[in-house]
């Protein structure tokens, strides 16, 4: 389980997180929604130890991430897959080499590595693309390779940073299906996005990050029925100067 408690993070004068608390239950997809620059990606980087919090608790499987030494952090990261917003594939390596890199670090034998590469590419429907370079792939394919790279490690958790941003609706639906499929395999997902269609499709729980704290957290139905004006405005995608639609009762 991932637990964030009263997490604070600022970059210089800019306060990004101001007491964020959130539990990410095992075996579910938890989605963090929020506006651009609200600290969603920072939250993911804190979970995996790429950033250190100014204050607060960040625990993964009961381990305090900020207190782990380099070796323990590497050990923890072996159980966490990370899908970056722009895939972050190594552009000097082929698709297969990108996936191989993480597997080789775990000391797996060559047959196992090859099998994992094939299986993970099949999972993201990219079989036969092993020898292509990232520059030869579309944005959607790069994201799917990023997911394959994470899935190949057989992690307990996968963190998705804006997985559908910038993709066409069909490719977004493919990515959504992949996130649901990994959840069904028992992998806990923590997804940050401002794509509400995707959030409602893949999320089991949704938390709204606003002003550095989780404004509301609940199931998809609870968020859809929210009366909180800030959450309501965000999920409706309504600008500040537009009045909310009048809700008529059934009578």
């Amino acid at each position: 389980m991932i637990r964030l408690g009263d997490v604070h993070k600022a970059f210089g004068e800019k306060v990004v997180l101001a007491g964020l608390s959130l539990d990410v239950p095992d075996g579910m997809n938890t989605v963090i929604i929020g506006g651009s620059g609200s600290g969603k990606s920072v939250t993911l980087k804190l979970v995996v130890g790429l950033l250190e919090p100014d204050a607060g608790r960040i625990e993964v499987d009961g381990l305090s991430v900020p207190d782990l030494d380099r070796d323990d952090l590497a050990e923890l990261r072996a159980h966490i897959g990370y899908v970056f917003q722009f895939a972050a594939l190594f552009d000097s390596m082929t698709v297969a080499e990108n996936i191989r890199l993480g597997l080789a670090k775990r000391g797996l034998d060559e047959d196992t590595i090859r099998a994992r590469i094939e299986h993970s590419l099949a999972t993201v429907e990219l079989s036969g693309q092993e020898d292509r370079y990232p520059a030869e792939l579309s944005g959607g394919m790069r994201k799917r390779v990023g997911i394959a790279r994470a899935v190949a490690l057989k992690p307990r958790y996968i963190l998705y940073d804006e997985p559908t941003t910038g993709l066409d609706p069909v490719t977004s639906a493919v990515i959504d299906r992949l996130m649901q499929r990994t959840r069904d395999l028992g992998v806990t997902g923590l997804i940050v996005t401002h794509d509400m269609r995707s959030a409602f499709t893949v999320g089991d729980r949704i938390g709204m990050l606003h002003d550095g704290v989780i404004r509301q957290v609940g199931t998809v139905a609870e968020i859809q029925a929210t009366t909180d004006p800030v959450v309501r405005q965000f999920i409706e995608g309504r600008p500040d100067d537009v009045e909310p639609p009048v809700r008529r009762s059934a009578s």
Partner: peptide
């Protein structure tokens, strides 16, 4: 370029120093 395209972060998440 690797830093600004998050490839360095990706490397670290794959447990590399």
């Amino acid at each position: 370029t690797m830093r600004v395209t998050e490839q360095v972060d990706a490397l670290e998440t794959l447990a590399y120093d």
